[in-house]
Design a protein around this nucleic acid. Structure first.
Lengths: 349, 349
DNA sequence: CCCGCATCTGACAACGTTGTCCAGGCCCTA
DNA sequence: TAGGGCCTGGACAACGTTGTCAGATGCGGG
């Protein structure tokens, strides 16, 4: 006996509200089940006349193929997952959009979720996506241990890490040249005469933050400058901690004359603080900002191309899915220094 | 005979790469299929000892439940779809994020896609999501006829429209008070002495654009000002067309002394153009911008709360899903005028 | 010692689709 | 007209899970 009672309206009742199935369409059109399937999927071997009848029944009933069943049968979901850090972050919008465009070109949909920078949540999310049998996964890591994905990857889930490398597993990843970008940005300040340069960035356990810090240190070392502890602030990312950090390095015994800002969220606060200072403080910021050129002075930035990163990652993902067995690779995309004024200010001691 | 050959390694080969199923786990643990299901789902009625054995087998095999099959059986996907216009638009990031947060609180995942402002693509996307049997759909309409969703809604797909109302069907929608916001913004300019005020907005077939235009006209009428054709530009949204439109209304026989900008993409270009003018032109913009307060002068805006809109819509969606039969409703959220300087400039004739 | 009851376990069907395979009808040729 | 090949259509199983239901086991009481 069926669990769900049937209604006598010509459509079998089921759990999806009350949806017609191929069986219903077949009954109405007076053909076999498989014939409906053929029509729905545009397979050959159906007379125009039969096809018309089936199409009519489909329209009349408002039939829509149940992709869950289809997926179960076929084993491919035509869906890729994107685990990112925060969709509201302006850096991830274009990235996500780029991944979506590539997915769309391959006929796939995109499921995404935010980890909110929490490793546990990242794992939970990634595994939930795997349980839905996404064909592939683009992950912007929050944690630094991704061994939990090993069984999935072995089972055939294509995986690409973005923005930060994978932790403790060997996998494709697409990154910006954080080290080189930061080094070039700081070198730019040095070239304009600065020696006391501050760095405000995120926690060094985040790869990008660590690399940018390394770039800062390298540039300072290249210039033969000893970095004082008071010049670097790590882990401050919320507005008021950034503010305090900036104010401290601007007012200590050897105050900085220039600041290198480690990411866009930090930058907006730093700009505010610098605008309040009586003397002009130079600024170079990692990540571009929409209106950076309209500020006084324009903000000199080390820009990454979020869309290119997303596109590259997604391409890589689908190349994995196309079956070309390729060894995991680490792709580093160059950054671009855009001078707009703030980075060219001379030191004001 | 099975279509797919089985391998003699203790795991049945299947189409998902090579994944263990409950059957495999059951065989390894020496228990029945249903017992595994019970353990996986935390159902009661399993001895601790049995549970341990099953858990062990799960870990050893790296089993992960196949949600496709589960969905097929249960009829609920715990997934909601979001059809938006462009994820790269800074307005939609926070909105999407808010929807995701609410979904997460209800244990659901979010699939999203961009319509790129194309009605056909919106429909294609929405129907694809329905074919995957999302439980609910949040749609930011690109088109103005949504009757194609009628069968879906009847079949039980919860649906909420956001930012713009649904076309030709009766459904929940959550909007900003575009008319009131624009009217207040323009009235603000009038209050500061302006009479020749320009409006640059999107195509009026887009509801928000039409409403904001209506708000502009209402405010002008309230002030007893006859609007000249040359003062309004509709449909220009790409940078150089906006630029041309702005330059034209600033240089005609009766040049405007203030501009009301209809959305954030228009605004960034308008700001650039105004900065190039020799005389000061006042500006009020619909939609807030990240660095609006740091520009010279700060940009006065009519702000909508994207996160609140997304949250409200998602709440509404899950209320529909919770089965409370509620009549479709149109919810309008207020906007907020934030004065920062640009809107308070006096007319410079 | 046997019965009744509670607790735990497993066999089986069903979800809606697609792949395989076969049946029947048609046309063409010899 | 018989035989062969082709084209169309349909019956059936399988995908991996969960709900139903009945069987097995153990325990206590009469």
């Amino acid at each position: 006996m069926p669990e769900t009672p049937r209604r006598a309206v010509g459509i079998a009742a089921n759990r999806y509200g009350n949806r017609p199935t191929m069986k219903d369409v077949a009954a109405r059109a007076g053909v076999g089940l498989k014939t409906v399937s053929r029509v729905v999927n545009g397979e050959p071997g159906v007379t125009p006349e039969t096809e018309r009848r089936v199409q009519e029944a489909i329209d009349a009933l408002g039939f829509r193929r149940n992709d869950s069943a289809r997926v179960l049968r076929k084993g491919r979901t035509a869906t890729v997952g994107l685990v990112l850090e925060d969709l509201a972050d302006p850096f991830y919008g274009p990235l996500s959009r780029a991944v979506e465009e590539v997915a769309r070109a391959h006929g796939a949909l995109l499921i995404n979720g935010s980890s909110a920078e929490d490793p546990d949540r990242e794992q939970e999310l990634a595994l939930a996506l795997c349980a839905r049998r996404v064909d592939g996964l683009v992950v912007i890591p929050a944690g630094d241990d991704h061994r939990y994905l090993e069984p999935e990857i072995r089972a055939g889930v294509a995986t690409v890490f973005v923005d930060r490398p994978a932790g403790r597993i060997d996998a494709d990843c697409v990154l910006s040249d954080n080290f080189g970008g930061a080094r070039a940005g700081v070198a730019h300040l040095v070239a304009h005469g600065h020696r006391r340069i501050g760095f405000i960035g995120d926690m060094p356990r985040i790869h990008t933050a660590a690399e940018r810090l390394r770039g800062y240190r390298a540039a300072m070392e290249d210039a033969g400058i000893a970095v004082e502890d008071a010049w670097t602030s790590l882990g401050a990312t919320d507005p008021w901690r950034v503010r305090r950090a900036a104010e401290q390095m601007l007012s200590g015994p050897s105050p900085v004359t220039a600041v290198f800002s480690g990411n866009n969220r930090v930058t907006v606060t730093v700009i505010r603080v610098l605008a309040e200072q009586s003397r002009a403080v130079a600024l170079v910021a990692f990540d571009d900002l929409e209106l950076a050129d309209l500020l006084q002075p324009g903000v000199t930035v080390v820009a990454q191309d979020a869309a290119a990163i997303g596109r590259t990652a997604a391409d890589r993902l689908f190349r994995q899915l196309d079956g070309t067995q390729i060894a995991p690779e680490r792709i580093e995309l160059p950054t671009r220094l855009i001078t707009r004024g703030s980075g060219e200010l001379p030191p004001a001691d």
